[in-house]
Design a protein around this nucleic acid. Sequence first.
DNA 1: GAATTATTCAACCAATCAGTTGAATTATGC
DNA 2: GCATAATTCAACTGATTGGTTGAATAATTC
Lengths: 201, 201
Amino acid sequence: MNKDGDTEDRIFEAAQAAFHEHGFDGARMADIARRASINQSMLHYYFRTKEQLFDAVFRKAILAVLPPAIAILGEDGPLLAKLERFAHRYVGILQANPHIPAFILFELRRNPEAIGRLAGETAGPVFARFRGDVERAVREGDIRPIEPSHLLANVVGLCVFPFVARPMLQGGLGMGNEAYDGLLRTRADHVADFLRHALRP
Amino acid sequence: MNKDGDTEDRIFEAAQAAFHEHGFDGARMADIARRASINQSMLHYYFRTKEQLFDAVFRKAILAVLPPAIAILGEDGPLLAKLERFAHRYVGILQANPHIPAFILFELRRNPEAIGRLAGETAGPVFARFRGDVERAVREGDIRPIEPSHLLANVVGLCVFPFVARPMLQGGLGMGNEAYDGLLRTRADHVADFLRHALRP
DNA sequence: GAATTATTCAACCAATCAGTTGAATTATGC
DNA sequence: GCATAATTCAACTGATTGGTTGAATAATTC
């Protein structure tokens, strides 16, 4: 018998890999069981249903990327410095979890309403604060005039996009895995620099 | 009997809607048949298999967004002007086909190798040319020094991201559909402006 | 050591799925 | 009008799927 949660962890890891790769609809319980080297009924013993197993995996993914974004954007200090910190820390988080952005975008299509609501509840206040920060920075002449919502989309998108679009960008640029990994390693610096130039008055 | 391709078109439109919404794995042939108001066996009569039906839908989606990107980036002229043209025309294409970017990113996960290869074969030459254009523009002092691969990811990502991440951005920004549609309507101008500022020497 | 609880298992199940079958209906060509 | 081809249909099929069942095994408690 297992008494230290090892089987549950194994199931979770296998499910995470399968759901990240295939999404909810494409992942198969039989495949997850095989990956975890268990009998399939044990998935149900530990997690009851496919839906609940998926929820556990999704929750972990969201917790990996949403609270840090909120925390960083909610910090005090000059806007430009904050955006640079965001780029460095957020790209770092994405590099540690390269499959999560696409996984979440994948889930966005399956469940746009629920995730929109979740985003509103969790990130809404800090996004609103971001708007205020941008407006103040413009007023004080720290940055040139810019629409805050567009800027927010830019900041997040510049960090996220090279991860979600990797196969297409990598193929189009004729890069191997090492070269593209190298590009991702310089991504944070590039984004910070790009934003600095884009926003200077 | 149908002699003007009406049934085939109806099937295709229904399949497009279903595949855009649910992806390959989540879409159901019975649902597509219901949407097209036909008997399910007719899907097979016209398109043989689910895979072939999906391929037809995917091909149309790719043809809507990849050749225009290649054409615009392959044009002659100063780089900055070209990037502005790209932003305006590409965002316009995305606005006419708002579901396609996410659909393609969705498919990227299912089939990274095939799409990476397709991107390399079709967009590879024009991306390589883009690299040359950037390097020349830097040399001639038209733009500040910048890594061409990063810039390419930025240009495409700034156009695409607000479409693929819509539910999350919209929810986080506390916007209704009309407000977000309004934001997307100004997106092309914003991207062009943002790039101009980001790249000026 | 016995009773209870937790874990694991193989076999099984009903529902769903993509696809097939063969007949009926409709259209076309002579 | 008949023969042929194209289209459409309802019923059917085997495989797959997520989940259940009940027994066996292992661990824990007293």
